[in-house]
């Protein structure tokens, strides 16, 4: 029997060292059609969830923001608008393909000067202590191998008083909604993925990884265990998505 530690990759148990590579393959595969699939899968509601995240970030002009797993840069672009020329936004993603798509998109839209792009692992953030006023991670935490390690790393790079925002799929509060959501995730999503992105496996993984992700209360406990204070969460769209917020004391 292998003594290597394991973790989940969707519903599969895999060795911890292997998960990052498997997740990377998923995102290499979907990067080109990521924005289109997001709009199709959520009916555009992901923009509302991200807008709410921006509101709760309370970011102001001149501040510094780290957007982890920033992907195609939806949040980073909004943050860059708000912090202005005297502020700083770092779009970080572990996946080279996603980062390339995000960088090309934002540069094409004229974002430069206050925006940096960094390929970084959320578990080992390559930034000095107390660097950012706000750290956000949207739809990325569930793909991280060691979530506790990542949360502690985010706490380290936050300035005292800074806030962490975790936007992630969660557990619907209503059982009826949960059933409808299950049917949608496991039947419609993989089919849609095959049709639009030519890859049903990646979207099957998406549905499975959402089910394996900690629910609202568990994630809240993880934030508190990592050292965040005044933690809270807001259910969005009946709990399909939850936004967790915690502060560095």
């Amino acid at each position: 029997m292998s003594d290597k530690r394991t973790t989940h990759f969707g519903y599969r148990e895999v060795e911890e060292d292997a998960k990052a590579g498997l997740v990377a393959n998923v995102f290499h595969s979907v990067a080109g059609r990521y924005d289109l699939m997001n709009d199709l899968m959520s009916g555009g509601i992901h923009r509302i969830w991200k807008r709410f995240t921006i509101e709760l970030s309370a970011v102001r002009g001149g501040q510094s923001v780290l957007d982890i797993a920033g992907g195609t840069g939806d949040l980073a672009a909004k943050f860059a608008d708000i912090v202005g020329p005297t502020g700083r936004v770092v779009l970080a993603d572990i996946n080279e393909s996603m980062l390339n798509v995000g960088r090309d998109k934002l540069l094409d839209h004229g974002y430069q000067g206050n925006l940096e792009f960094v390929q970084a692992d959320a578990q080992h953030l390559p930034f000095p202590d107390d660097s950012f006023d706000c750290v956000s991670i949207a739809f990325g935490l569930r793909n991280v191998t060691d979530k506790d390690l990542a949360l502690r790393s985010m706490l380290r790079v936050l300035k005292p008083g800074g806030r962490l925002l975790v936007l992630e799929f969660s557990k619907p509060a209503n059982p009826l909604l949960e059933k409808a959501y299950d049917s949608y995730s496991f039947r419609v999503l993989p089919f849609m993925g095959k049709l639009v992105a030519g890859d049903s496996d990646s979207y099957q993984y998406l549905a499975e990884s959402i089910r394996m992700h900690p629910d609202q209360e568990t994630l809240l406990g993880m934030l508190e265990d990592a050292g965040f204070v005044n933690c809270e969460y807001h259910n969005l769209t009946g709990g399909v998505v939850a936004l967790h917020r915690g502060f560095k004391a």
């Binding site: 509601i45 509302i48 969830w49 709410f52 609202q216 809270e232 807001h234 769209t237 009946g238």
Partner: peptide, 14 residues
């Protein structure tokens, strides 16, 4: 603690 009230998705969309 969870914040109660109207689903923020609705108010944010409006």
């Amino acid at each position: 603690m969870a914040a109660a009230g109207i689903d923020p998705t609705l108010t944010t969309a409006a």
